[in-house]
Design a protein around this nucleic acid. Structure first.
Lengths: 199, 199
DNA sequence: GAGTGTGAAATGCTTCACAGCC
DNA sequence: GGCTGTGAAGCATTTCACACTC
């Protein structure tokens, strides 16, 4: 049984929400109040994951959260490897980020076409020139990429990532990437986000 | 006539796509190839905006793009004002960004709870302590905010933004924000994006 | 009694298929 | 002839409403 797209999007956010929810239980109405999704939608969404933890007085937060994590994400590997592609200003900010601290995700490599960048910059993980990308992604079994290159090379780098077997791309460029269906893309460029808000 | 949610999301991306498309015309099939949306969906989406520019040999790119911009966004003001809320590491990177260069959006103010930050940091736009936020957002008619504070104060700052009359928030925190229906939120935190990819 | 879990109805979105147009 | 524009059918999601559980 595959979970519908919209439902999945909400469930991921629900998991995020529960991560900093301090009560022991939560009702679908409370979730409605916090998120704006109708309580009926919330109950349907939760029906999509295989859990019975809410027969009365709302859902048990801990159980619900655990079920979400188990069924939404498949974390048999404790560590999910990521890499940065593009070490200009946009990419450099991830060199010493702690945004992923305490999460299953970990940045394990950086790439840039300019050898200058990869040699001069320093970080807690190795930096490589682009020609080594495919080899390293495959050897290290890197799952996801942060695409932080300039627009003009965004699609080329995306192609290279696809060819390397990447599973998903967090797209920091304002470009619309063309990738095969099995590769997922999340568009997070500031410009695109602002256009989405305004529309 | 209000454009459905999913359709709107695609149309914004279509506008982005056309922005760096060099041919004079484009067919729905070509768009399908580039984006993965079926050509029928593309034609339906375009039906939602009021334009007839494709009777043969595909759509005229220039006309289509113009119609998209006109009907998706309401740019009677040439400049759409934005502000940064939170001037820690996450926010500082926007102090000298050129990501919005050549776009209608412009960052015109920054806020932080620490007077230390607002006085020491320098940027091309003024930085203010949080207590002045409401006043300045209203005086300057700021439409959108980039929320780059730490998680623990994310919801409080969101509340303050709502109270100030903000129209939308680009949410760089991994928190799920509770805001009234009329305020839009785009979630672009790295962590949330990675979870969305994995689900 | 309050709130979930879930058939069944209502709605909305996507696909189909084809007439019409350049 | 190729491609759009669009009714109508098909499918998916959301809402409703209520039996059921604690």
């Amino acid at each position: 049984m595959s979970i519908p797209e919209g439902s999945k999007r909400r469930l991921v956010l629900l998991e995020r929400l529960l991560s900093d929810y301090s009560e022991k239980t939560i009702t679908s109405q409370k979730i409605q109040q916090l998120t704006g999704w109708s309580s009926a939608v919330v109950r349907r969404d939760i029906l999509n994951i295989d859990v019975k933890c809410g027969a009365t007085n709302g859902y048990k937060v801990a159980e619900l959260k655990e079920a979400l994590v188990n069924q939404l994400y498949d974390f048999k590997d404790k560590e999910v490897k990521c890499c940065i592609v593009g070490l200009g200003k946009m990419g450099q900010r991830f060199l010493d980020t702690n945004e992923l601290y305490d999460s299953p995700f970990k940045i394990v490599a950086g790439f840039d076409s300019s050898v200058n960048k990869t040699e001069v910059l320093s970080s807690s993980f190795p930096l490589h020139p682009t020609p080594k990308m495919k080899q390293i992604i495959q050897e290290e079994k890197i799952s996801y990429a942060l695409l932080t290159v300039e627009s003009f090379e965004a699609q080329d780098m995306a192609n290279l990532l696809v060819e390397s077997g990447i599973k998903g791309i967090v797209n920091y460029t304002p470009c619309v990437l063309s990738v095969p269906e099995e590769v997922k893309v999340e568009n997070v460029s500031l410009l695109t986000a602002l256009y989405q808000l305004k529309a």
